[in-house]
Each structure stands twice: as C-alpha cells, then as structure tokens.
Amino acid sequence: MIEYIIYKAILVVIVFCITLVAAMYSTYAERKIAGFIQDRLGPNRAGPFGILQPVADGVKMFMKEEMIPDVSNKFLFILGPSVAMFTSLMTGAIIPWGTSLTILGHQYSLQVADVNIGILYLLGITSVGVYGIMIGGWASNNKFALLGALRASSQMISYEIGMGLSIIALIMTTGTLSIGEIAAQQHGWHWNILYQPLGFLIFIICAFAETNRAPFDLPECESELIGGYHTEYSSMKLGFYLFAEYTNMFISSAILATLYFGGYNMPFLGRFVHDPNMLALLGTFFLFCKICFFIFVFMWVRWTLPRFRYDQLMNLGWKGLIPLAILNIAITGIVMWITGKI
C-alpha cells in the first residue's frame, strides 16, 4: 500500500513537473515559432538559442512588484489565477503517458488515475476552468477585464458543447469513457483520427477556443481589450494566467494526441523493440512527439489566422460546430449501424 502511494506520488510529481516544464517551454516555443514564422529569430540572448528565456521570464515575474488594484476584490483577485492554474494542472492526472513499466516485478502504470469516466472528468474540469478567468476578470473591477471575462465564459460554454458532442461520437466508436482504454484501443494503425476525421476537426477547433488561443483569443485580445481579463494583473499572478494557458495548451495537445492520434501507440514499433520497458518509454517518447506536434500546430495556427470577430465566433460555435457535431454523431451512428457494430 505504502509502495503504491509512493509510486503514485512520484508519478504525480513527475507529471506535474513535466506539465510545468512543458508549459514553460511552450512560452519559449511560442516566441520562437512566432519569430520563425515572421522571418525573425525569436529570443536568443538568454543562454544558447535563448533556451534560458523562460527561466529569465520567471525570474522577472517573481521579481516584479505585486500590484493589486485598490478597488478590486482582494481575495477574489488572488483566487482567480489560482483557480485557473489549479484546474489546468488537474487534467494531467487522467492522461495515459505510456503503457506501464515493470520494475522489480511490479507493474507501474504510467497514468496517474485511470478514471473510468475520464472523458467526463476532462469535461468537468474544463468547465470549472472558466471560473479562474471569470473571477479574475470580475475581481479586477476594470471594464476591459470584465469584458474579457464575459467573453471568455460565453466562449468556453459555447464551445464546450461542441467539444462534448464531438467526443460523444468518439465514445460511440470506442465504447468507453476511460481515456486509458481509448488509448489502448488505438494500437497499430487504429488511430481514431481515421474513424473520426470530422470529430477530430471539431474537437481541435473547440480545443483552440477552450484554451483561448488564436484565432479565438477574444478574451484577451490586446487590440480591443488591452489584454482582457488579465489587464490588471502583473507579476506572478499574471504568470499564473499565462502559465495556465500554456498548460491548457499542453494538456489539450496531449488529449488530442491520446484521443485521436493513438496516444503512446506507434505503428511498427513492436517489431523493432521487444523489451516492454523500452517499448513503454518509446511510447511515451512518441506521445511527446505528438504532443509537440500539436503544440506546434497551436502556435502555427495562432500566427497564421487573424482573430475572429465576436459574433463570428458565436456563429461558428452555435451554427457551425454544434450542428456539425450532431451530424457527425448521426453519421457515426449510421455507419456503425450499417457495419453492424450496434
């Protein structure tokens, strides 16, 4: 029992660290990729190729003066970023980072918690995540922050529906709500993207919106709202918000990879490597490759597409994605019916 707890604790810490580091370096990657896409070099002063840039940023954030607006609600002002950070970190628990390692005859799964309703957990945490932004935006007592928070909440609620509906089609084909199981089902070439291309498209669009990434970054669009919900924030509380955003992006990428791109599975891998531990580690490696790819896609899209207008955003969500997702469910159902799966 103790052993189990220690193992879980270690795993949690590792996942935690990886998430944080990944988020940190996402900021670096973001700037780097932005630079490259814009024919620039991006940060390159701190350390070789600027790889210490995130550390420098972090130090800067910590060093900055704490500013809490006088008219704001102090407690909620601090609660906002905390909630945002907290919820974004909670999702990592259900992602299967790999199969399992066998050490000293014990099997250790590389998933912190294989909740049998993992997908619902995911949706639940995502839906709670919006509070961080809303509370922060409201507590700032600033109209731009409030507008940003309003936009964020309506946007996230709207796109959560599309997301959930697209996942339902996936669940129909996989027949389970457990993410671990979904990942395990995609061995070989049975990646879900092949069965659910439309669902994937909807999901990824919704993921963009849920993480407040461009082209759906209306809650924080600088040109209109001076940063939106975090207008009044500075120092580490701002850091939390940014961090939460990048963590979300990382987790979203991980989920995208897991749900649609086979997770830790890689075709033909089993033919070359036979040691199960090695296989597991390689799987984890490939998962991270996929995650990196998706993070790249996130950034790539950000620096390609212009921001939506607010009504366009809502139209896309309600009139585009949701009907499409329902259509996808119908198609999935019909196909499954024809092929005799139900």
């Binding site: 619902l120 639940g124 839906s127 709670v128 809303m134 409030l146 909440s153 996230m156 609620i157």
Partner: peptide
C-alpha cells in the same frame, strides 16, 4: 462528475455570467 459538470461547470457559470453582464 455530472454534478461538477452541470452545476458547477455550466449552471453556475451562467449565473456568474449574467451577474457580470
């Protein structure tokens, strides 16, 4: 989980949204 999703995640967000709006 449904309680968290529906009540905390959807219904109360709506409340908060309207109050803010």
């Amino acid at each position: 989980i449904v309680q968290i999703m529906v009540y905390a995640g959807a219904i109360m967000v709506l409340f908060l949204f309207v109050i803010m709006l």
